[in-house]
Amino acid sequence: MSNSKLYKGSLATIILKLLSQQDKMYGYEITQKVKGLTKGELNITEGALYPALHKLEAEGVLEVEVVRVDNRLRKYYKLTEKGKIETVSKLAELEEYIKNMQVLFNPKFGLE
């Protein structure tokens, strides 16, 4: 992830959120989706994305499907049942984090 170290801790949650909106995605597609949604603000590098995907796969949060597309093999990732539960809790955790950050950095907003 090139922009900021702040995003690093949220990479897994970003991946899970995207996969909860789409049945299955492949690596390059995830990087482009994030780039598109953030209007080029957030660039996930290959060196950060694939280890994160492989870690989630090893934890049983994601499952893999390899299919032949345009003369080559493509590895798709999708959420497992465990992954769907994990997504809900990770998103709640991130929302809580954002809320706390807002309270800390915008005290007025927090008091209202």
Partner: peptide
């Protein structure tokens, strides 16, 4: 093979 097929697809897509 498994790592290479994924990276080949990534580079090819880009």
């Amino acid at each position: 093979t498994d790592i290479r097929l994924e990276l080949t697809d990534h580079v090819a897509s880009a």
